[in-house]
Amino acid sequence: MQHPARQDTRPERASNRLSKRFILITVFSCSLLATFGLLILAGCFPDENYNFHTRSFQLSILLTVLIDVNLLLLITGSKRSDTTAEEKDCNSSRRSFLTWTSSLAQSSAMGTVRQKMNDSIAVVTKKKNPKSRHPIIPAGAEDFQLFKQRCDVCQKCVEVCPNKVLKPSLAYETLMLPELMFNNSYCALDCVKCNEVCPTGALKKISIEDKTDIQIGYAVWIRENCRVIEDKPCNRCEEVCPNASIQMIPSGRFMIPIINTGKCLGCGACQAACPASPLKAIYVEGHRTHRPG
């Protein structure tokens, strides 16, 4: 009764405060979601060894902290207009409290998330990415450096490849340079079409017999990715090898494939046939310089 005006506004202010609290909570939950989103985004682009990009990961943390702080600033700033001096004092201390606690909470939450993620990543990193350290180039190219010098990336060999294993490289250093990718098919030993069409001599003209005597790479088995250690017997790689370079031997209670790297030509038949998914359990590692078989 002493302050009719204030009494009048109270229910209004209460509802106002409620709606503000609602906004605050929504914005906070949104920002939290954004935090997680960014973390997941950062984690979703592993490099070739299935490690997570650290720089983007940390950038995302910094970004989220900044975004959240700004959000807080916005929220608390918007409340400024209709408050008394005492409430302002109270508000400012509340603001600082909110800022500190929320920042702390955020960082600790992110710390936990990171810890959690590390734990979960540990399982993932055990699998190895089946990727050759060195581009695999067709028989007749002899040496990668020479091939790089001689090839003028006309893509004729890519067009003519019947198994579609010869593809232009997407890596920066070797952009558009043809390389062999064996995930879907393999380089047939009775085919020298790429050598026939090459106009620059980057791929030497070789006969089919020559081809069976050139090692362009060698198969590598990845235990972690293989079905056999999950008690699912499999010998697809042994079956398909055209050169009998793979044999199955007992190792503990499993039968595992072993590769005779002295015989292996690097045709990729085993890699193409490997049923392990999404990461193949056998892949071809390219030789820098091709070797006589």
Binding site: F52, V69, W100
Partner: peptide, 25 residues
């Protein structure tokens, strides 16, 4: 807010560098 953010981000960064195996790069 400024000091808080800077301090926190540096803590987070330092932790990430010293502790995380991800930070090796």
């Amino acid at each position: 807010i400024g000091t808080g953010t800077a301090a926190l981000s540096s803590i987070v960064y330092a932790r990430a560098v010293t502790q995380s195996p991800l930070a090796s790069s």
